Simulated scan of single mutants.
Amino acid sequence: MNIKKKDLISLILKIRKDIGHKDVEVVINNLFFDEDQGNLLIITPDRPEKSVIIGKGGWVVGKLREELGVNSIHVEAYSDFIVPLYRMELALDKLEEIISLYSYPKRKPLVNLSNLLKARMENPYNIEFLLRNFKSTYTESHEIHEENNERVDFKSVVALSGGVDSSASLVIAKMLGFNPLAVTVNPGDIILPRYFRESVEDLTRKLGVEHQYLDVDMKEIIDGSLEGRFHPCGKCSKIIEEIIQEFTLENNIPFLIYGDLLSTGAQSLHFETAAERVTLRKGKILRINLPALLSLKKGEVKNIAVKWGVKKRSGYGCPLIGEVHKKQPHMRRFSIQRVLRETKAGALEPGEALDQITGIL
């Protein structure tokens, strides 16, 4: 489909007039149409121009989708990408500095990541399109060493919870040739319910990725949070990270990948070490917060995960935090603060944040 900017602006103006919206100027910077998916991406200069195309209650963009006969239309403001682009520049500088520390074959997936990041900086609007084009170049799980013809097997650990952030991270890690081993810490049904375990097992099966559970007793955290002595999320995350880090170190796996959205820029990459083992060869792992490094938004990681069958779930957090909110209503404030932190960082759109806060309340 050949969609011209001028024709699209005329159609938007007509739709606005037909449904009784105010006559205003329509400004479009760029258009991207994905023929394979039938998705149209419209880039506007800023949020006010974005609102003009969406219309009150989404009526304008809904009618536009019907008129064009496309599967979906997504409208983005270029102003929303200015800060993420700066963060990606910081991440790229740090990544290229780190790449120089590694030799083949460990270097190769990092180079692939660098290439994806550069492509993202050139076209920050459509990560799914970039991944589909990148898929044909990703490294297979087992390769032949170019110099001495030896078979090599380099791996990363991907912390996989079953949520969309970690699921998207696993998909990207696989495509980039990190040959991931997915690791899920299992504290029991109240924190990791059956539907999350099913999601984990289904995704790893589809990707052909090895998966392992690590059991842990979180009775102290469960009891303490239900009694209202503390909010569970920070303590739970800390224990899970310590267990996965220790597993990664014990198995001498060089890369540890998380689905963190907030540690952007240079902070998306850092080394984690055991005190008694600090050399690069043994006992030192590079932590990569993959969505944060790529400055992905929540909506983007959801779209990647959903394409691989991961279900979007409403509400906030695990069953434990839901019970804590019921028994200890004062704890809702701390959960809302966590949502607002992601919103302030640009990882969550206001509408997504509102849905989560409504669920908390």
Rank of each mutant, 00 (worst) to 15 (best):
residue 46 D to N: 14
residue 106 K to V: 00
residue 27 V to Q: 09
residue 226 L to I: 13
residue 245 Q to D: 00
residue 304 I to Q: 11
residue 264 T to G: 12
residue 18 D to P: 05
residue 320 L to M: 11
residue 300 E to L: 04
residue 286 L to K: 08
residue 306 V to P: 08
residue 102 Y to N: 08
residue 278 V to N: 04
residue 128 E to H: 09
residue 83 V to G: 08
residue 161 S to K: 04
residue 339 V to T: 03
residue 136 S to W: 15
residue 208 G to W: 09
residue 71 N to C: 07
residue 140 E to Y: 07
residue 314 S to Y: 06
residue 152 V to E: 12
residue 144 I to N: 13
residue 143 E to H: 05
residue 216 V to H: 01
residue 333 R to H: 11
residue 129 F to I: 11
residue 76 E to P: 03
residue 103 S to P: 01
residue 122 E to T: 07
residue 43 I to F: 01
residue 211 H to G: 04
residue 55 G to H: 01
residue 183 V to Y: 09
residue 135 K to Q: 05
residue 136 S to Q: 15
residue 43 I to Q: 02
residue 349 E to F: 06
residue 295 S to T: 13
residue 64 L to R: 00
residue 20 G to F: 07
residue 18 D to F: 08
residue 268 S to D: 09
residue 322 G to I: 03
residue 272 E to I: 15
residue 231 H to Q: 11
residue 299 G to S: 07
residue 277 R to W: 05
residue 167 S to V: 02
residue 285 I to L: 12
residue 118 K to S: 06
residue 357 I to Y: 12
residue 159 A to L: 09
residue 226 L to F: 10
residue 61 V to P: 00
residue 295 S to C: 06
residue 142 H to F: 12
residue 110 L to D: 08
residue 131 L to M: 04
residue 133 N to E: 08
residue 195 Y to S: 10
residue 47 R to I: 15
residue 292 A to E: 13
residue 344 K to P: 05
residue 348 L to P: 01
residue 250 E to V: 01
residue 225 S to H: 06
residue 139 T to K: 02
residue 130 L to C: 02
residue 93 D to H: 05
residue 360 I to P: 12
residue 38 G to S: 14
residue 292 A to P: 12
residue 234 G to W: 15
residue 189 D to T: 15
residue 252 N to F: 05
residue 143 E to P: 03
residue 54 I to N: 03
residue 83 V to A: 07
residue 290 L to S: 06
residue 238 K to G: 14
residue 150 E to P: 08
residue 298 K to D: 07
residue 44 T to P: 04
residue 198 E to H: 05
residue 234 G to C: 12
residue 39 N to A: 14
residue 120 R to D: 02
residue 232 P to E: 15
residue 151 R to Q: 13
residue 67 E to P: 04
residue 194 R to V: 08
residue 210 E to N: 11
residue 238 K to Y: 06
residue 355 D to V: 02
residue 179 N to S: 14
residue 68 L to I: 02
residue 324 V to T: 11
residue 346 G to D: 04
residue 341 R to H: 04
residue 241 E to W: 15
residue 333 R to K: 14
residue 346 G to S: 06
residue 302 K to I: 13
residue 276 E to V: 14
residue 66 E to P: 03
